[in-house]
């Protein structure tokens, strides 16, 4: 479970953690990815694991487009840049939820209860005995890939340099918008991957993203902004804490443990565990 939170957080670690842009629609990206893999399964009988690359590719395009259409302008704001980012992406999140309700819900509205129970895609037992295991594996691969990407490739360096000083990178011929659009695409693609895997064992509904998004923010912040490894460690810690809390407290309180650990960590280390910002 911890690695799954890590998988949701890894895309956010890139967007929120490395590029320092707030994305309040992260949970809705996840929701769209889950729907995408659900429909691929429902209409074309493509197993979510096989469709994961397709979903990731679709989300890549989506993320880049969102950057170019909205976030690019939000970052341009001279005053209150943070609030403008928060509320423009929050507005986007509301629009995405509305669209999901508009296009997806009517089909299930007549059987509101049973669709939650019945329409879940389950490949457990057919293709894979342990979808969670695959999720964990993908999560580790995604983190390793991102780590390599950020620290070993020119693009990764360009990304970090762009965050540090957009003016200076322009002087050496790096197009800020191109780098950030790719970064957003990549972040969204990683969420796409997470969504495709999670579609296997979670219910899918327009508001599904919200519950995971907050935990993803906490995971990234717990690990510390600017650190890929931190987000990975954060994911594992969050999963462990949740499991332990569930043993001690009633299940409805399991998130309290996660939140309390976050507060404890930032009180001791105000920049998260491995943060550089």
């Amino acid at each position: 479970m911890g690695l799954l939170y890590g998988l949701i957080a890894v895309g956010l670690a890139l967007i929120f953690g490395l590029m320092d842009v707030v994305n309040f629609a992260h949970g809705e990206f996840l929701m769209i990815a889950m729907y995408a893999s659900f429909f691929l399964f429902a209409f074309f009988a493509i197993d979510p694991l096989l469709s994961a690359p397709l979903v990731a590719a679709a989300l890549f395009v989506f993320g880049a487009v969102v950057y170019l259409l909205i976030v690019r302008f939000a970052m341009r704001a001279k005053a209150n840049a943070g609030m403008v980012q928060i509320f423009s992406t929050f507005g986007l999140a509301i629009v995405m939820r509305g669209l999901a309700q508009f296009f997806f819900t009517p089909d299930y509205r007549s059987i509101p209860q049973s669709w939650l129970g019945g329409k879940t895609i389950s490949v457990a037992g057919i293709f894979l005995p342990e979808p969670q295991l695959i999720g964990a594996l993908v999560s580790i691969l995604a983190f390793a890939g991102l780590y390599f990407f950020i620290h070993r490739t020119d693009f990764g360096r360009a990304l970090e340099a762009t965050r540090e000083d957009p003016g200076a990178v322009a002087l050496v011929g790096i197009d800020k918008n191109r780098v950030f659009a790719l970064g957003w695409g990549l972040g969204a693609a990683l969420v796409g991957l997470a969504g495709a895997i999670m579609a296997v064992f979670f219910y899918i509904y327009p508001d599904v993203g919200a519950s995971f998004a907050l935990i993803a923010y906490v995971t990234v912040a717990l690990g510390g902004f600017g650190s890929v490894f931190g987000a990975f460690a954060g994911g594992i810690i969050v999963g462990l804490v949740e499991a332990v809390t569930a043993l001690v407290l009633p299940p409805s309180l399991k998130s309290v443990g996660i939140y309390a650990v976050y507060l404890l960590v930032v009180f001791i280390r105000p920049r998260g565990l491995f943060g550089s910002m």
């Binding site: 909205i70 302008f73 939000a74 704001a77 001279k78 005053a79 209150n80 840049a81 609030m83 403008v84 509320f87 423009s88 929050f90 507005g91 986007l92 999140a93 509301i94 629009v95 995405m96 939820r97 509305g98 669209l99 999901a100 309700q101 508009f102 819900t105 009517p106 509205r109 327009p206």
Partner: peptide, 22 residues
């Protein structure tokens, strides 16, 4: 109940916050 109000409301928030950051 089909979320059109959310679409309109969200779009307005995006537009206002982008157009008038202050």
């Amino acid at each position: 109940g089909r979320g059109v109000d959310l679409i309109v409301y969200g779009t307005l928030i995006v537009l206002i916050s982008l157009a008038l950051p202050q």
